[in-house]
Design a protein around this nucleic acid. Structure first.
Lengths: 156, 156
DNA sequence: TTGATCGGAGATCATTATAGTCTCCGATCG
DNA sequence: CGATCGGAGACTATAATGATCTCCGATCAA
């Protein structure tokens, strides 16, 4: 049912938390460590650690080792999109198995497949959607997203 | 990674096939049976049978028993949306576990959850997207969907 | 009226993806 | 030098999905 994984949930919570600390009023610039986030949101510590490592590998956050270490956003919250977060954790967005089929790979249906092309367009639309919403939108505001399609207008 | 299930893939293929037979030039109005679709697209027969039963239960297609039986679209292809097909097979669309949380159910993160509201908006946007594209769009044409978001405009 | 051909329904098994855990390593700072 | 961090890999458990099997009732035509 098009569900995002728990890991991605955790990533979003963590990033939201880091951003709000980093740019908040209390202690701006403070690094945030894994334990702090895990306790705040009841997330299994080791699982969250993996998630944050992935985000770090993908350049969304900066890590600082040693005592008093932790994480910081690598860039502004408005420059981190939901799509980037999701793909950092779950890999490239693909609503079908054949979305990222390599040359020579074919699904059993490929021969007469009649839905591949339209589905790739759906996928592209979802990607646009997720890439047009940022961590910044999640922080403060009410993300405004509108969708226009001529296809079913006037159809009851 | 926001993947739709194989069953839904099969449903889309089958509906596309039924629609093209039903409204095609060759033998319009002919009912289509499960075996025909399964062989055409290399789909496991019994699995496809279940999928078609679900579509029938949800009122997207009509079933006809007995010899020479099979399925017909229950309404025009332009009145069957991708969202309806997807939800017939996979249940209500929900990108998070808490999307359809019943009263009294809480996830472990609920207490300080900072992402529920924005995620529900993302979900709603995806739903709109899928509900604005129809089987008819998949048949003939090039579905035109545009997305507008003010959030990241002007952000480099 | 009877039997072959359909869909309807349920149980069951296999496979895969996800969620979560455990252990050890290297870096850093006091 | 040792406590506190993140980095990394193996590992287990659980849930979702994909697929199969069996039996039933409806229908139509010979």
């Amino acid at each position: 049912m098009l569900k995002i994984s728990k890991k991605t949930d955790y990533a979003l919570m963590a990033l939201q938390h880091i951003a709000s600390v980093q740019f908040g009023d209390i202690t701006p610039g403070r690094v945030v460590n894994t334990k702090e986030i895990a306790e705040e949101y009841n997330i299994p510590l080791e699982l969250l650690a993996k998630v944050l490592q992935l985000l770090s590998k993908n350049g969304l956050i900066e890590s600082h080792n040693g005592p008093k270490g932790g994480y910081l956003l690598a860039r502004s919250a408005r420059q981190i999109t939901i799509a980037q977060i999701l793909e950092s954790i779950e890999g490239p967005l693909g609503i079908t198995d054949c979305s990222h089929e390599k040359e020579g790979e074919f699904c059993m249906q490929r021969e007469h497949c009649n839905i591949r092309t339209p589905l790739l367009k759906v996928q592209d639309s979802i990607y646009q959607l997720l890439n047009n919403m940022t961590l910044g939108d999640m922080l403060g505001g009410t993300p405004l997203i509108t969708i226009q399609s001529p296809s079913t207008q006037g159809v009851e």
